[in-house]
């Protein structure tokens, strides 16, 4: 593939998702677009690109974008955030609000392991929070992964990464060669297709937002815009969980890093976007 085509495709992906395809990542284009080219009846990726250049095809552009997302995830990924949720965030939240609804959002939920891990954790902890009810929303730009997440079906390989076998026995049914989360866990999570480039404030207010391992794909202005929009959807001191390689530092002053709990940020009390501008 020539440099022009790479740039052209990278722009298609960036314009829709905000994902920056660096030069090193360009090699992924070939391996991921080859199956699309084949499926759509093109002889090569070059053919696909020249056709696309000749005639705008939004559906194709989205297929390409979807193919360039990285959906790697697993149950209880990195473990610490889930320990932090259990040991710090939930008790603190309870001290603040002893009754009512706690809304949690996984902003790039991929195939669902993250929100379902939270749902299993909440199930274990529920007796400590009798007054609170929890509602989990998972969104992702890729319809493909959202559909898989909704199904709650995982391969033998997937259920063996990060999930203790006791949880497998407790929360899953075996369905042929796959494992399916039981209805009581599945019903705790609502999945929707959702693009972080769009105005997602209509999802409502959230006490806790997990936005892990997705900002890494964006440039600085995009990260800042998303974080500040999230801040407008949270109460003062609401909790933001980022991935191990992600930070708010240098991007926005809407969040404070929490002193004792690494990777958890709290929404700055009284912050408004106007003030930041």
């Amino acid at each position: 593939m020539n440099k022009d085509d790479i740039e052209y495709l990278a722009k298609i992906v960036y314009d829709r998702s905000g994902i920056v395809l660096t030069q090193e990542k360009a090699y992924l284009l070939e391996s991921r677009l080859a199956p699309i080219a084949r499926k759509e009846g093109f002889n090569s990726i070059d053919d696909l690109v020249s056709t696309l250049r000749g005639r705008a095809d939004e559906k194709m552009a989205w297929q390409i974008t979807d193919a360039m997302t990285t959906n790697e995830t697993f149950f209880f990924r990195d473990k610490t955030p889930f320990d932090n949720l259990k040991n710090h965030v939930l008790p603190e939240l309870k001290a603040r609000k002893s009754a009512g609804k706690v809304r949690i959002w996984c902003a790039a939920s991929s195939t669902g392991q993250e929100p379902y891990s939270i749902a299993m954790l909440l199930n274990e902890e529920a007796s400590k929070y009798p007054g609170l009810s929890f509602e989990i929303t998972g969104t992702d730009i890729s319809n493909r992964v959202v559909e898989k997440a909704k199904s709650g079906l995982y391969s033998q390989f997937e259920v063996q990464r990060g999930l203790p076998v006791t949880s497998l026995v407790k929360y899953f049914d075996k369905v042929d060669d796959m494992w399916q989360l039981k209805p009581n866990i599945r019903s705790q999570v609502t999945f929707k297709q959702g693009n972080l480039q769009d105005d997602f404030t209509s999802l409502g207010k959230f006490d806790i937002i997990f936005c892990r391992n997705v900002l890494i794909y964006f440039d600085q202005p995009t990260k800042a815009k998303i974080l500040e929009r999230m801040a407008t959807m949270m109460p003062d001191n609401g909790y933001l969980f980022l991935g191990a390689a992600e930070t708010v530092m240098g991007l926005t002053d809407a969040f404070n890093s929490s002193r004792e709990v690494r990777g958890v940020y709290t929404r700055q009390a009284g912050w408004t976007r106007a003030k930041a501008a």
Binding site: F74, K79, F157, Q160, R161, G162, P164, V165
Partner: peptide, 8 residues
Amino acid sequence: IIEAKLAE
């Protein structure tokens, strides 16, 4: 998988 289980 082995590493994940050893972590468990």
